[in-house]
Design a protein around this nucleic acid. Structure first.
Length: 312
DNA sequence: AAATTCACCAACCGCCCTTGC
DNA sequence: CGCAAGGGCGGTTGGTGAATT
């Protein structure tokens, strides 16, 4: 009795269908506001926060629940994350039917995948086959390379072999992993695309709206910033040597460390996590991880398609 | 077939901002 | 102006099912 009463005081955990019904009914009558009064009126033994969250993430009409992010949505998230940082709620406003939680989860999964990929790649070959991770998941992307990564200029002919969704991205810097970087098998796959494009996140003032966006946007621009600037294959004046300097200006490759490049590229607009004084993510100091935030997700698709290939 | 790994998702927690008194 | 409550948001965790070994 007492226990039941306690339960009634405040419920946690998964929502039941009846609770959903009550909440829906409440929102129908009162609108999505005054969440705390749901509890105070004795309608549900849930906190206002919990009610709001449930509504926003599950009950709100027109949500794309259960649908994976499309390639286009992924691209939008990547672009907007580069622009806004971890402002999931803001990013979500540009994705119809997606919530901040959706975007956050998508991004988190992507980050974990990348972290794992990098970790796996950083292991010496001798360890790799002994590791618990399946061999098929080994990938060929790393910043701790046996040989330095080479950075080449973008050219239209090369770009055609790349993920199309990134070709219109501004300030594209293409990093080409050497074919034998991690796996000799890459030689045979070279023509397929052993190229990784990095999207710098420098917040440049843009003149014109990006015409390539095909998804519906609430505004033609984002807070006055066009979503993407016009095509610019390269940051003006950034030749390969300049790029190398920018990537490696903090620490040059040391032979005894096996050409380990410590990447610190301020021009990328690196971000830190938002909370610690980080309300303005975009001007946060760079963090080691944040560099990788700008990896396109389909990079992984490509990598994984390689990884799952029997050629590995 | 069992164990392990991974991806995805739902929900909670804590911090911060806004608002009302 | 200061305080408290409510709400918004980002980070994190835990559960579950699918995929892989």
């Amino acid at each position: 009795m007492e226990r039941r009463r306690e339960e009634m005081l405040m419920r946690k955990g998964p929502w039941m269908a009846e609770e959903d019904e009550i909440l829906m009914d409440y929102v129908k009558k009162h609108g999505p506001r005054d969440w705390s009064s749901i509890r105070s009126k004795g309608l549900l033994p849930r906190t206002g926060k919990s009610c709001r969250l449930r509504w926003v993430n599950k009950l709100k009409p027109d949500l794309k629940t259960g649908c994976k992010f499309t390639a286009e949505e992924e691209r939008v998230v990547i672009d907007l994350q580069a622009r806004f940082g971890n402002k999931w709620a803001r990013i979500a406003t540009y994705l119809q039917g997606r919530t901040d939680n959706d975007v956050k989860n998508f991004w988190s999964t992507r980050q974990k995948r990348l972290a794992r990929i990098l970790q796996t790649s950083n292991q010496p070959k001798s360890q790799k086959n002994n590791g618990k991770a399946p061999a098929s998941r080994h990938v060929a992307t790393t910043l701790e390379a046996p040989r330095p990564l080479s950075i080449v200029e973008h050219s239209s002919s090369q770009s055609q072999s790349c993920q199309l969704s990134y070709l219109e991205n501004p300030d594209v810097i293409k990093m080409v992993a050497l074919p034998d970087l991690m796996n000799p098998g890459l030689h045979s796959l070279e023509t397929n695309l052993p190229q990784l494009e990095f999207t710098p996140t420098e917040k440049k003032p843009c003149i014109e709206p990006q015409p390539h966006f095909s998804f519906p946007l609430p505004h033609p621009t984002l807070d006055g910033l066009p979503l993407l600037p016009e095509n610019q294959d390269l940051v003006p004046g950034l030749g390969a040597s300049n790029l190398m300097e920018m990537f490696c200006h903090q620490e040059t490759p040391s032979p005894d460390k096996g050409s380990h490049y410590s990447v610190n590229a301020p021009f990328l607009g690196l971000r830190g996590n938002s909370r610690n004084g980080g309300k303005g993510d975009s001007d946060n100091p760079a963090t080691p991880d944040s560099f990788f935030d700008d990896f396109p997700t389909d990079m992984f698709d490509y990598i994984e398609s390689l990884a799952s290939s029997s050629e590995w």
